[in-house]
């Protein structure tokens, strides 16, 4: 047992300093621990800031930018200049970015020949190269679905097929991308009108106006919209510097993107990148209002269907078939004039 004196001393230690005998060391330690804990919490709360890229910081100019449809030509030029500077700072290339407007008397349509598509996926990667999609994480606008022959049930399709060679004899291949619907559900659900249908039929997105709620992704029956979950990464040397405001300019993290029929090409009369890369000529693109265009001819003369017609989206993307005459391609059929063939029976 301790003496009463020492017991009193012990009690005083646990009670803290008394008014008449301040103990600076003890009180300092106490406040230091409390302060350090507080600052640690503060620093931890601020630590996400270290991930903030300078490029991601919304400069006041971008923050105050109006909706695309409300901007005057001068304001659009200011926005384009801001994007040019941003792209140049990040990728070291000064892009040729413009605000291409729809042409009068033009409504785009796409047709795809299911009898010819072999599922080689060249269209997928030509699209990625043209439209500056993120390479990692991968974003692709086109999905090539491998379907068992004899069905149109997409639930039986597989877009992860990884065969050494295509096409497989028991399957056919159906590429799916944005159908640019005339009655687009994605546009209806957008709470901020960041996506809309242009007069030439293309459904576009203002990446500066999108809030990333992904309602449109949920609404699309064709699974055509892609979300930038992470900051897109794109090697500098692979950047396509020919850009348009509403199409393939680099997107930030947290916005939606999708196929736009290569606006930066098609509004200047060129063909979409996926069409040019197709080795089979399965892909056809043109002006629906021009009766001589290839898509008009297809709609007039071929057997055409649209995907999920029953949902009422009125797509501008049509699938069609060819008539086939298998006997003409049959290897076993030999020329009857050949000396090795058995002589045809004489007719009575």
């Amino acid at each position: 047992m301790t003496t009463p004196t020492s017991a009193t001393t012990d009690v005083r230690i646990w009670d803290g300093p008394s008014a008449d005998a301040p103990q600076p060391r003890r009180s300092f330690l106490r406040s230091a621990v409390a302060g350090a804990a507080g600052l640690a919490a503060f620093a931890a709360a601020l630590s996400p800031l270290k991930d903030l890229d300078v490029m991601e910081l919304a400069d006041p100019q971008a923050f105050l930018q109006k909706h695309y449809k409300e901007m005057t030509p001068a304001e659009i030029e200011v926005a384009l200049e801001r994007i040019r500077n941003k792209v140049e700072a990040r990728y070291g290339v000064r892009p040729d970015i413009r605000d291409l407007r729809p042409q009068a008397g033009v409504e785009f349509a796409y047709a795809l020949n299911l009898s010819r598509c072999i599922g080689c996926r060249k269209c997928v990667y030509a699209c990625v190269a043209e439209n500056n999609q993120s390479r990692s994480p991968q974003i692709q606008y086109i999905r090539v679905v491998e379907m068992p022959r004899g069905t149109l049930d997409l639930e039986r399709g597989n877009h992860h097929y990884d065969r050494p060679r295509v096409p497989d004899n028991d399957h056919y291949y159906m590429p799916v991308q944005c159908h640019q619907c005339a009655n687009p559900p994605c546009v209806k659900v957008c709470p901020v009108e960041a996506t809309w249908k242009e007069p030439d039929g293309v459904v576009v997105i203002d990446y500066d106006w999108c809030i990333g709620c992904r309602y449109c992704e949920a609404a699309c029956p064709y699974w055509a919209r892609r979300f930038n979950f992470a900051e897109p990464t794109l090697p500098k040397e692979e950047l396509n510097p020919t850009m348009s405001y509403l199409s393939n300019r680099p997107r930030p993290r947290g916005v939606m993107e999708k196929c736009h029929f290569c606006l930066q090409r098609t509004r200047e009369g060129r063909m979409p990148a996926c069409l040019e890369a197709c080795p089979t000529g399965s892909r056809k693109f043109g002006n629906l209002l021009d009766p001589t265009s290839e898509v008009s001819q297809i709609l007039k003369t071929k057997r055409v269907f649209v995907l999920k017609e029953e949902v009422g989206t009125l797509p501008r993307f049509f699938y069609y078939f060819d008539e086939r005459y298998p006997s003409a391609h049959d290897e076993n059929v030999d020329d009857p004039r050949l000396p090795t063939s058995p002589a045809p029976e004489a007719r009575p």
Binding site: I118, G119, C120, R121, K122, V124, Y125, P137, Q138, I139, Q140, R143, H159, H160, Y161, D162, R163, P164, R165, V166, P167, R226, F227, F229, P279
Partner: peptide
């Protein structure tokens, strides 16, 4: 026959 390009390895795509 063609050798197909790689299958997608994208977010929300498997």
């Amino acid at each position: 026959d063609y050798v197909p390009l790689p299958p997608p390895n994208t977010l929300r795509m498997g």
